[in-house]
Amino acid sequence: MAPPLPPAAPDKTSDHAMSRRSFLRGSAAVSGLAALAASLSPLRELQDFTSTEEFLQKYYKELTPEEMKRVLARIEREVERQYGIRPHVRDLRPMDGVEFVYCLNLTRCIGCRKCVHACVAENNPSRNPEIQYIRVLRLPHGSLDLEKAEHRYAAEQVPEKGYFYMPVQCQQCENPPCVKVCPVNATWQEKDGITVIDYDWCIGCRYCEAACPYWARRFNFAQPTIPRERLNPEMAYLGNRPRPKGVMEKCHFCVQRTRAGRYPACLEVCPVGARKFGNILDPNSEVSHILREKRVFIQLKEEMGTSPRFFYYFDK
């Protein structure tokens, strides 16, 4: 019987340069570095850092006119760098003695969705992923049950028999739940009745989206993409200037148009004249006439107590 072998001493003089320990140490270092690189890799997508100027910008309502001028110049610069088009960005304030109201004739609407796309063309929302402010609901005749509504209808021809159409967009409530839930006051109601959003102040918590009973608010989940040739260069700070990723947006009654006295884009394109817009404080305006004389029968979901400034009416 051979005597038991003495325990082999670690062979320090072996030809193998790598010991188990050094291999483990090396592979741990390599995988640690790889993990660090992987965790930092989202930084590679940061082409556009928030400029110091934007980072230090004050709250909209605290900006002095000179500061506002600098802010608008910064936005023009940034848009030009991104799209190669020099925009005209303005800060339009509400007019005195004006409160906007929208009326929509449900008897006339044919559901052609031209308003949806005119709005997109005007307001510079992201095209991919797609953001649209107006949703046209198709409802069966004789009911206003929104559970029966369909907004992805695809018809050869509209109007379809047996249905009516109800476009829904921001209702510009007099008692807006979205404003109440905003933790940073990035959205508020102005004196002409338009609820606006400061895209530079929004933190993207989406509380307002959850609070809105009309699904009027849209969130920029991704960096918005707009084809250069479809960019509308006539912009407003609280309106259609391009939004960054991670902020809310919604219909603002085209502040860049309506606060300059013009009609909103969705109205201008309506082929049947179902859309009516104007100043409710002016007794001679079209909307005053409609609210006085026509069968205005709903404010959408009026049981919510939001008191919309968007009225649906009928002809007969």
Partner: peptide, 9 residues
């Protein structure tokens, strides 16, 4: 009647 514009995606 007329063709409707494309719906939401």
């Amino acid at each position: 009647g007329r063709a409707a514009a494309p719906g939401p995606r």
